[in-house]
Each structure stands twice: as structure tokens, then as C-alpha cells.
């Protein structure tokens, strides 16, 4: 076991965690977060592979590293677009749900946590 392998396995677990969160959490914002965790897991896997390619005095293969920077910026852009869609949905109806049938109008508010 060495560092890149360890982080590669960590990345595999992160993809699993993110996928579970994406499916199970009902709130769309939580799904966006889950999707970002999947994304970061994929990035980390790619980063571990880049690290394995260390050669000629470089700490890692610079090609995957540069693509990772590109990927992180694109992931941010996609997240911003998703959040904007979500907020527009909220502005339209005041409710944010992905359920096929909207839940009945709330009559009693949940008690506060206090």
C-alpha cells in the first residue's frame, strides 16, 4: 500500500458515498452536493493516477493535472447553473421538490429544533 493507491481507494469510496447521497437525499440542493462529491471522487482517482505517472523529476504527470484544473472549473460552472435552476424553481412555486406529485400544502409547521 502506498499513497496513490490509498487515495485511489479513497476516491472509489467517495464516488460510492456521493452516488448514495445523490439517490437517497430528497432535497435537490443535497443532490447537487452529492453530485459534487461524486465529481471530486473522480477527480481524486484521476489525481492518484497522475501521481503514479511521476517521472523526470516531476511529482506527477502534468497532463492529467492540467485536465483536473479544467475539470474543477467546469464542475463549479455546472454547480452554479444547477443552483440557479433550483433557485428559479423556488421563485416560481415557493417549494422545491423533484417528486412527481407535489406534497400536500403544509398546514402545520414542523416544530423548531429548540
Amino acid at each position: 500500500m502506498n499513497g496513490p493507491t490509498l487515495f485511489g481507494l479513497c476516491a472509489a469510496a467517495l464516488v460510492g458515498f456521493g452516488l448514495y447521497g445523490l439517490i437517497v437525499n430528497p432535497q435537490p440542493l443535497r443532490k447537487i452536493i452529492g453530485f459534487n462529491i461524486i465529481g471530486s471522487g473522480v477527480f481524486l482517482l484521476f489525481g492518484a493516477i497522475a501521481r503514479r505517472g511521476a517521472a523526470v523529476g516531476m511529482g506527477g504527470d502534468p497532463v492529467p493535472q492540467a485536465l483536473l484544473i479544467t475539470g474543477i472549473v467546469v464542475a463549479f460552472s455546472a454547480t452554479a447553473l444547477a443552483v440557479a435552476l433550483l433557485l428559479r424553481l423556488f421563485d416560481e412555486g415557493g417549494l422545491v421538490t423533484l417528486a412527481s406529485e407535489a406534497p400536500p400544502t403544509k398546514t402545520t409547521a414542523d416544530p423548531p429544533d429548540a
Binding site: A12, G16, A48, G53, A54, P62
Partner: peptide, 23 residues
């Protein structure tokens, strides 16, 4: 999710050695 994780983990453990590199 566990299946996806397991598949990825198997890939990680079977990466080619020596690693291909463009460095």
C-alpha cells in the same frame, strides 16, 4: 453505490505497472 465503489477499487488495485506517463 457499494458495487460502483467495489468496481472502482478493483480498477485502482489493478492499474498497470509501470504507470503510463506523459511527463
Amino acid at each position: 453505490s457499494a458495487a460502483v465503489t467495489a468496481a472502482l477499487a478493483i480498477c485502482v488495485l489493478n492499474l498497470p505497472d509501470p504507470a503510463p506517463t506523459l511527463a
